[in-house]
Simulated assay, not measured.
Amino acid sequence: MTEKIGVLGKKSPQRTGVERVVNAPLPTVYGKFQAVGYLDHDRGDEQVALIYGDIGTEDVLTRLHSECLTGDAFGSQHCECGDQLASALRAVVAEGRGIVVYLRGHEGRGIGLLGKLRAMALQAEGLDTVEANLALGLPVDARDYGVAAEILHDLGVNSVRLMSNNPRKREALVEHGIRVAETVPLLIPPCENNITYLRTKRERLDHHLPHLDAVAHLS
């Protein structure tokens, strides 16, 4: 039986807040969004929420998307992040309203770009994504979703329909006072290059990825 890895850890310390800095129109290939820029005073990160339509306050279709340069910008097939981001943006446009919070500082589940690349090098040698992080002396998942909850509070959102396969995101939002009315799966068809990574996320990090059962033929 594969050992599962707990990643919740201790409750995050009290945050000092995020500041809304700018609101600008952002036309994209998916539709015309409003980009609301924030400064996270705790970490110094610049954050952005992409808003589509009149979002309202309840049951807002929402994606908390962790920054992934390799997947989002370069189209890496090591993960499914780029496809998830595109799917989330299409989904809120199809819904007519929604939010994608793009969380900077989350690269490599919070270990940074170079840490992620080092972990990917170890994975190419046979370690899984959890083993690689631990071999480098890095946490399995160092992400904090407090800033995302603060952004949602600032936007007047009380409850969300959360596009995610990761139960930790739901738990974190609830912990920070955002009700999760529904979890909406964001399942991307796997490929030969990411199937091992995705299976590790399901087996060791408790991600809900039932569609992997249908692709047992992939190595």
Results as ranks from 00 to 15, higher is better:
148 A>Q: 05
191 C>K: 11
204 R>I: 02
150 E>T: 00
124 A>S: 14
179 R>W: 04
191 C>H: 06
124 A>K: 14
199 R>P: 00
138 L>P: 00
191 C>P: 00
92 V>K: 03
99 I>K: 15
126 G>E: 11
115 G>M: 05
104 R>T: 04
154 D>C: 12
94 A>Q: 09
120 M>T: 01
193 N>W: 06
110 G>E: 10
163 M>A: 05
125 E>T: 09
160 V>M: 05
175 E>F: 07
209 L>D: 09
143 R>N: 12
179 R>T: 08
120 M>E: 09
124 A>Q: 15
123 Q>P: 03
161 R>A: 09
97 R>A: 12
147 V>K: 15
168 R>P: 00
210 P>V: 07
150 E>H: 10
157 V>S: 03
200 T>W: 10
104 R>K: 08
127 L>Y: 11
175 E>T: 11
110 G>L: 13
123 Q>S: 10
174 V>W: 08
88 A>H: 03
92 V>Y: 06
139 P>R: 10
183 T>M: 15
113 L>F: 11
158 N>M: 10
143 R>P: 00
210 P>T: 07
145 Y>W: 14
100 V>F: 03
189 P>R: 08
192 E>P: 10
196 T>I: 15
151 I>H: 06
139 P>G: 10
186 L>M: 13
208 H>G: 07
190 P>N: 13
212 L>T: 14
168 R>N: 00
100 V>R: 03
114 L>D: 13
125 E>L: 08
126 G>W: 11
210 P>D: 06
128 D>E: 05
186 L>Q: 06
208 H>V: 14
173 L>V: 00
184 V>G: 02
100 V>P: 02
178 I>F: 01
121 A>Y: 05
173 L>R: 01
90 R>P: 00
127 L>F: 10
163 M>R: 03
149 A>D: 04
106 H>A: 12
189 P>W: 13
181 A>V: 14
154 D>M: 06
190 P>Y: 12
130 V>T: 04
167 P>M: 14
155 L>V: 00
192 E>F: 15
196 T>L: 15
133 N>I: 04
102 Y>W: 05
136 L>D: 09
137 G>L: 09
96 G>A: 01
115 G>L: 03
202 R>F: 11
191 C>S: 14
172 A>K: 13
114 L>T: 12
132 A>F: 12
171 E>D: 11
92 V>H: 01
169 K>V: 07
203 E>T: 05
114 L>I: 11
147 V>M: 15
159 S>E: 06
153 H>V: 10
94 A>C: 00
96 G>L: 02
190 P>G: 13
211 H>K: 11
150 E>F: 11
106 H>Y: 12
213 D>T: 13
171 E>G: 09
129 T>G: 07
